[in-house]
Simulated scan of single mutants.
Amino acid sequence: MKRILILNGPNLNLLGTRQPEVYGTTTLADIEQMCADKAVAMGISVECRQSNHEGVLIDWIHEARGAFDGIIINAGAYTHTSIAIMDAVSSVEVPTLELHLSDIHTREEFRHISYVGRVAFDAIMGHGADGYPMAIERMVQHLG
């Protein structure tokens, strides 16, 4: 059975109440349930984690090596700032998909930079919460 790790970065614990005009009203718990339901339907395993701390996300990326077949990461603001997360993804050699609720390329200019995108095999963005099941499908397709 394929195992996928879904990582969510800073402030995503506030989904549903944080800037609903940008991120929607779906909560992180709702998204995690969507992911669990999609996993059951596809016959795979997913594990969802969220942290506001860069080092914790890096530790989880490291732990994925040998334990998960793929990583889906919504690194939040760390997408645009964290060379350390980019290096971690690059170092573990686990296929990684970048995910964002909004389309970072249509937002503020500083959000157009994605360090994660430099090492991810693909990106899904701008589909709100629906992007999570889409990302799972894309990951499974990539893994074969």
Rank of each mutant, 00 (worst) to 15 (best):
M1C: 02
R3H: 12
L5N: 08
I6A: 12
L7V: 05
P10N: 14
L12R: 01
L12D: 09
T17W: 02
Q19W: 00
E21G: 12
T25F: 04
L28C: 04
L28Q: 12
A29I: 02
I31E: 10
I31T: 10
E32S: 09
M34N: 08
C35S: 12
C35E: 13
D37Q: 15
A41S: 15
M42H: 05
G43D: 06
I44P: 08
E47H: 09
C48P: 00
C48A: 13
R49D: 03
R49C: 06
Q50N: 11
Q50P: 10
Q50I: 03
N52A: 10
H53V: 06
H53P: 01
E54P: 07
L57Q: 11
L57G: 08
I58G: 09
I61C: 11
I61Y: 10
R65S: 15
R65Q: 15
R65G: 01
G66N: 06
A67P: 00
A67D: 09
F68D: 06
I71D: 13
I71T: 06
A75C: 11
A75N: 08
T79A: 07
T81W: 07
T81I: 14
I83T: 13
A84T: 10
I85Q: 05
I85W: 06
V89N: 02
V89A: 01
S90T: 06
S91Y: 05
E93D: 15
V94C: 13
V94K: 14
L97G: 11
D103L: 10
T106V: 07
R107W: 11
E108W: 05
E108S: 04
E109C: 00
E109S: 11
I113W: 05
I113Q: 14
S114K: 06
V116R: 01
D122A: 15
D122G: 05
D122K: 09
A123S: 15
I124W: 11
I124D: 08
M125K: 13
G126K: 02
Y132S: 10
Y132N: 07
E137S: 13
E137W: 00
R138G: 06
M139Q: 04
M139P: 14
V140Q: 13
H142V: 00
L143H: 05
L143R: 03
G144N: 14
